[in-house]
Computed example of a mutant assay.
Amino acid sequence: MALTEEEKEILNGNAEINKSLYTDNRKFVIDIDKLLPKGELIDIRKHTRFIDFPKHNHNYIEISYVYQGELNQIIDNRKIKLQKGEIVFLNQCITHEIKASNKEDIIINFIIRPEFFDYVLTLLEDDNVISKFLITTLYTNYNEGEYLYFKVAQKENIQDLLEKIIIELYNPSIMNKAAIKLLVGLLLVELIRNSQNIEIYSSNNYEKMLIINTFKYIEESYKKATLNEISGRLKQPHYKLSRLIKRYTGMTFKELLQEKRLNKAVELIGISNYSINEIIELVGYENPTYFYKIFEKKYGTTPRRYIYKN
């Protein structure tokens, strides 16, 4: 309930948000480096009360949690009123504005760098709305606005997890970062279990599903995967799917497949007794010379030296 310095200035007559606190950009894109120290992946910030917060977006993922009172937003021209205990996830491309909150309205904003979710995603199955939201959000080429609105005020286990995460963030301690990751992972699992209470908004869900299915195909079939095969499975012309992959990820299908194969090769180098030639075959390459070339380009060393280096 305590007033922040910004709120004190507003109550003393400052009628506009001081944008320099949030960005150096002329467009009102809130910069995470203004709010979060470099090297930190997640923090929380109480939303500024008593003033309309003008239309903006962020270069990070924001989760807003109504700790007390209510939150009135206009998200992509859609009016949303969140009640106590409700949550909304916003990706970097969504535009929203927030109506002035009263003294009793306590909104907690989670400020999160996308890479925070690299670990969390390993805990989740990929066939759910949260994983789909996070997967595309992790790629900066994806420029469609999206939000997930969770109507979970009555779910005590979810409220308890949110309370624990807030306490961990306000009171740093030993193993604090690991605890936060695990708690956020558990929170997402519980939100997925309550998917009947989620309102989803995306400006292009269909294209997003094509990309997610392509990732899944590469993950499962990287040894023999081809663009023609996945195009046939998805009933899409290969040139159309190729353009979508490039648009959403900044990479071609061939580059995505190569990235997966090289990552798998490094994994096998670290945990198996296979020879380098056996690993080359296991990840789907027939030409050892080509494999050595792309491996050295990516990792700056040969596979054999990589073994001893690591």
Rank of each mutant, 00 (worst) to 15 (best):
M1S: 14
A2Y: 13
L3K: 10
E5I: 14
E6M: 05
E7A: 05
K8S: 09
K8A: 09
L11P: 04
N14G: 11
A15F: 12
A15I: 14
N25R: 11
V29Q: 06
D33I: 03
D33T: 09
L36V: 00
L36P: 01
L41D: 01
I42L: 03
I44Q: 04
R45M: 12
H47V: 12
T48A: 09
T48L: 10
F50S: 02
I51T: 03
I51H: 02
N57R: 05
N57K: 09
H58S: 03
Y60T: 02
Y60D: 06
Y67T: 11
Q68M: 11
G69D: 03
L71W: 04
I75H: 07
R78M: 12
I80D: 08
K81Y: 09
K81G: 10
G85C: 05
L90H: 05
Q92T: 13
Q92G: 12
C93W: 15
T95S: 11
H96F: 10
K99D: 12
N109C: 10
F110D: 08
R113E: 00
D118V: 01
T122D: 06
L124S: 09
D126K: 15
N128K: 10
N128E: 03
V129F: 10
T137Y: 04
Y139E: 05
N141D: 11
N143D: 15
E146H: 02
Y149R: 09
K151M: 10
K151C: 10
V152T: 07
V152S: 01
I158P: 01
Q159E: 07
E163V: 07
E168V: 12
S173P: 08
S173D: 09
A179P: 11
A179V: 15
K181C: 09
L183V: 02
L187R: 00
L187W: 01
L187H: 00
N194E: 02
S195L: 07
S203T: 15
E207Y: 11
L210E: 01
L210V: 05
F215N: 07
K223S: 05
K223P: 03
L227Y: 04
N228M: 09
I230W: 01
S231L: 02
G232V: 08
K235H: 15
K235A: 14
K240Y: 12
L244Q: 09
I245C: 02
R247F: 08
E255C: 09
L256N: 04
K260E: 06
R261I: 04
A265T: 06
L268R: 06
Y274M: 08
N277V: 15
I279H: 02
E281I: 06
Y285H: 07
E286I: 11
N287F: 06
P288H: 04
T289D: 12
Y292F: 05
K293R: 10
I294Y: 02
I294F: 05
G300H: 03
T301D: 10
R304T: 14
R305S: 15
R305K: 15
I307A: 06
